[in-house]
Design a protein around this nucleic acid. Sequence first.
DNA 1: ACCTGAACACCGTTCAAGT
DNA 2: ACCTGAACACCGTTCAAGT
Lengths: 202, 202
Amino acid sequence: MKKTSNYHHGNLKEELLNQALNIIQTQGIDAVTLQVLGNKLGTSRTAIYRHFSSKQDLLQNVIFFGFEKFEEKFSPIFQMKEKTVVERLYLVGIEYINFSIANPNLYRILFGEKFQEVRESNCDISEEENSEGFHALMKLLIEGEEAKLFNISNPMTQAQVIFSLCHGMASLYIDGHMNIKDNIKELYEVSFKTIINGLLVK
Amino acid sequence: MKKTSNYHHGNLKEELLNQALNIIQTQGIDAVTLQVLGNKLGTSRTAIYRHFSSKQDLLQNVIFFGFEKFEEKFSPIFQMKEKTVVERLYLVGIEYINFSIANPNLYRILFGEKFQEVRESNCDISEEENSEGFHALMKLLIEGEEAKLFNISNPMTQAQVIFSLCHGMASLYIDGHMNIKDNIKELYEVSFKTIINGLLVK
DNA sequence: ACCTGAACACCGTTCAAGT
DNA sequence: ACCTGAACACCGTTCAAGT
């Protein structure tokens, strides 16, 4: 049973990214091994080096790739023009928490320390600085302000406050801190009220 | 130049914890290697196994040990009875952010995924559930409520909101997300106002 | 009781060699 | 252009042996 060819005809790079992402989600980052990847794709463990300069390089690309999948979850919600600004804000937050709970291993590496290296090695992000989702959040806040609904001194700072709160809840949840796992629904509701209360024109 | 004895007379365990913590803070978790630890302490790299069942076990103890140092930063602030509740809340938050910025590598492992294993393998934390600092925060909120300053429906949930926001700011800062590094002072001020605004009796 | 040295199975990476 | 197999230096862990 010898294979006629060991070539992947140019799609090995994409398969590597897909498989690595898959292993991260199901078994966590430590389970991603060049040996395991090679076995899954039917190549030796050194085949990787044709497509990535190192394992680090591969993982950085996975993070970049994973972010796209992450961002995709939110754009439909931001675009629900039939919903009010407040409703969209609520739904985006819910989606954010749900994603992190459903994909803890992926979420951890997307927002982990390795991200800094990704940004440094990629000019697009480095220049743009803000992610698509962060930008959309700012735009939503500005939309609320222009409708005389919100009172915001600095939309970027306000978006950072909201993002910090969401990231904090998600991280503490998935890593098992402060009993948050048992109280996430109420925590989200109180968090949302606190944020909205700080935004609304009185 | 042969040593008269390779014995550490019972303090090797403590030295291992100290050195591991030191390496984590200065070089990060990946730099903690049994070989490096052995070299620093003048033992072979297998000497560790007299005192810990595995490297994992050692790291869990480092996390436990590190949390004590972390918590110590806050108790003096919580106990400043000459300061108002709001002032103490402000200072605790500042201290929290400052610590995480000053000790990013340590902060990351204290609140990382490994913590769950520490809690599971340690009945004290598992039963108590809440850390000392979290408890002190809840008590501070209740003190504000009893003074008719704050209006709080559930002190635990409210403490979780505050903790999530602080953890989110700290994490996003040290891992280089959303431009927070360039805006941390304003971000903290706006965050604090938002939280206080949600707490104060109107 | 405490530590060592050799051995084991793994890891990422390099490189000459094969098609 | 793309992949392999052997080799290298590392890693955590086990274990018989030394004091």
